[in-house]
Design a protein around this nucleic acid. Structure first.
Lengths: 150, 150
DNA sequence: GAATCATGTAACTATGATAGTTACATGAAA
DNA sequence: TTTCATGTAACTATCATAGTTACATGATTC
């Protein structure tokens, strides 16, 4: 996983969970399916747990699963849970309160805020169930792509 | 300058140029006004020169200045010249063409593209002259904030 | 209740994108 | 011909992020 792909990792995993709601997924299996590390998976899914999107269990039957129906979780929920906006603007460190820097920052902030709003609106219209459905449709064409049973 | 502030550096500098069109600004002066390094300034303004937004000259009367009227340069032009979108989405490196990753990437790409479009639309409505005007208005209140003469 | 399995988390290291720096060539003006 | 400024290559520094190691906690199975 290269960079700021926490959101993608989260959504990918939730999609798989939605396609197999009765199954618990271990950090290890998820990490394997994402070319990353179990601890990284725990860190990311931990953010989702705080927001009540997933639950985790220890021990033999432990692992991660959805905390509620997949069609009640939007991509926007997950995006918010991750807490790392895809687009930010930091104010320029300019000397002496330069007026143009202030004007610039104001312009940039407004533009970025609107763009982010568009993004969130898009994300709010798409649920994890939608993603899972795409998966099932893909599986019909390409073979079963579910995680291997444990 | 911390991070990906090339756009801010560029716009800030262009604003000052617009406010003093007869003056040439050296990389050194610009760098000083941005808490950065002359070479970094040259690199960034070099991108703008390629797009015909600024011109540069060597030697005694050298330095940087606008290549055309400030009201004919939009923030969007500069954004495009910098060539570093504020928002990108990289495909997840998932194994075996997992269908959910494909669906995910498609969703993300579309959403980001729309958000970017909103951003560009905003930027297209704002010119460097607008920024310079904000500066002049600010100067009236706070004193002269132009770069010092050379 | 002992062994096993999985998460929870702290502390550290590795990676990589970005900015900063040094050094020097090129060319224009005084 | 000296001075000044850009142009650019090559390197170093910084910093956010992911990856790793290590171990505690707690649940399940035997």
């Amino acid at each position: 996983m290269k960079r700021n792909n926490k959101l993608s990792l989260a959504l990918h995993t939730l999609g798989h969970m939605a396609a197999a709601p009765d199954q618990a997924f271990t950090s290890e299996v998820i990490a394997g399916h994402n070319a990353t590390n179990p601890v990284v998976v725990r860190r990311v899914l931990g953010l989702l747990r705080v927001q009540g999107i997933v639950v985790s269990g220890k021990g033999h039957a432990g692992g991660w699963r959805l905390a509620k129906p997949a069609d009640s979780i939007t991509v926007a929920d997950v995006y918010a849970a991750i807490g790392a906006p895809l687009m930010t603007v930091e104010p320029l460190a300019a000397p002496d309160g330069c007026a143009i820097v202030a004007a610039l920052h104001s312009t940039m902030t407004k533009a970025v805020a609107e763009a982010e709003a568009v993004l969130r609106r898009h994300f709010a219209r798409r649920t994890i169930a939608d993603l899972a459905q795409a998966m099932v449709q893909g599986a019909k064409k390409k073979g079963d792509l579910r995680f291997p049973p444990r």
